[in-house]
Amino acid sequence: MTATVAPCILLIEDDTETRDAVSRVLVDAGYRVVGAERGEAGTRALKAGNIAGVILDVTLPDASGFDLCRGWRAAGVRVPVLMLTARTDVSSRVRGLDSGADDYLGKPFALSELRARLRALLRRGSDPRRERVLSVGELTIDFGRRQAWLGESEVPLTRREIDVLDRLAWARGHAVSREDLLEEIWGESTPEAAASLEVIIARLRRKLEKGERESLIRTVRGFGYALAGIRQGQTS
């Protein structure tokens, strides 16, 4: 966020009060906000360009957020999308991510969490053409279906473990700082979260580095972690 011009957020939400409140909060946080009540108006605003990120409500009067997002992705729109929804069960979340959204937040939400997620999303950017399957040697990880395979056998990875791998894979071999991982995956940088990250890295190493495989997750001393064995560009 070093840009001199404040990034512009497109907020598509049919409930006027929620839209106003969220947009005031975002303006306070230094964003410019374009509001839209319907999917159609939202799509038009998106096509007008110069949108840095979209906050998209799933339930709109004229379309479902899933369909809208899928439509944009099919049309080659690469703006990062954060979905807001009243439905928080696993299948809805998976559906949201499958339709091309980059993150998913259940209603009602804490404003601090919305700000943190949006910040992370804008920094990270969206790359819908990114390969959703990562293969390194024997290991295959399908981030879309959230499954990992070592050769023929499935490796059980929890959501957090997949998230950490996903974030590291996103960096394409570059190191990701501990703070970024904590902020983007735990939403907070507390000592508990930091301890939890260490546990997850240890578990990932134990589960994915069986046999004589060289270390998959490289520790960058005093900074963070990186995926070894893949170089920039290899996953796209």
């Binding site: 409930d15 009060e17 929620t18 409140a21 969220v22 909060v25 009243a86 209603k107 009602p108 939400f109 804490a110 404003l111």
Partner: peptide
């Protein structure tokens, strides 16, 4: 929806 508003 109303709970979201109240919270905001």
């Amino acid at each position: 929806t109303p709970l979201t508003r109240i919270r905001l």
